[in-house]
C-alpha cells in the first residue's frame, strides 16, 4: 500500500520533470537565433523529456501491479536515433551554407563532410558524359 502510493508520487514527479524539459526544449527551438544553435535545444525534448515520460510510464505500471519494462526499448531507440537525425540536419545546414563556414583545419586537411560529396559527384558526371559519348 505504501509502496503503491510512493510509486504514484514518483510517477507524478517524473511527469512534471519531463514536461519541464519539453517546455524548455521547445522554447529554445523557438527563441534561438541561429539554425545551428536551434539544433541544440530540441534534443533535450527527445532524450530527457520523453525519457522522463517513459520512466513515468514504467513506474506507473509497477505501482499499479503490472510489470512492464519494454518502454526501455523506446528509450534506447530514441537515444540512438536522436544524434543521428541531428547529425543529418546539421549536415544539410552545412552544405546549404546557412550557418557560418567551417574553420580551416591546422594540418592543411579538409573536413570529412565536405570531401565525399565532391568525390562522389565527379565520377557521376564523368559516367554520364562517358555514357553519352
Amino acid at each position: 500500500m505504501t509502496l503503491e502510493v510512493l510509486g504514484i508520487y514518483a510517477t507524478a514527479i517524473f511527469l512534471l520533470i519531463g514536461s519541464v524539459f519539453v517546455i524548455v526544449g521547445v522554447i529554445g527551438l523557438l527563441k534561438f537565433s541561429d539554425p545551428m544553435t536551434r539544433l541544440h535545444a530540441p534534443t533535450k525534448v527527445g532524450t530527457l523529456g520523453i525519457g522522463m515520460l517513459l520512466l513515468a510510464s514504467i513506474t506507473h505500471s509497477f505501482a499499479t501491479g503490472g510489470s512492464s519494462i519494454h518502454e526501455l526499448l523506446i528509450m534506447a531507440f530514441l537515444f540512438v536515433t536522436a544524434p543521428i537525425s541531428a547529425n543529418f540536419i546539421a549536415k544539410a545546414n552545412i552544405h546549404r551554407g546557412v550557418c557560418a563556414p567551417l574553420p580551416d583545419l591546422p594540418d592543411d586537411g579538409t573536413w570529412s563532410t565536405l570531401t565525399p560529396v565532391e568525390n562522389e559527384r565527379a565520377p557521376r558526371e564523368e559516367a554520364t558524359e562517358g555514357g553519352r559519348a
Binding site: R38, H60, R96
Partner: peptide, 27 residues
C-alpha cells in the same frame, strides 16, 4: 522557420512531442 533545416527540425520535434502525448495517454 527561415531555412528548410529548421522546418525539418520542427517536424522532428513535433513527432517526438506526439510520442510523449501517446505515452501520457497510455499512463
Amino acid at each position: 522557420g527561415p531555412t528548410s533545416g529548421d522546418r525539418v527540425l520542427a517536424l522532428d520535434t513535433m513527432v517526438i512531442n506526439s510520442l510523449g502525448l501517446i505515452v501520457v495517454l497510455g499512463i
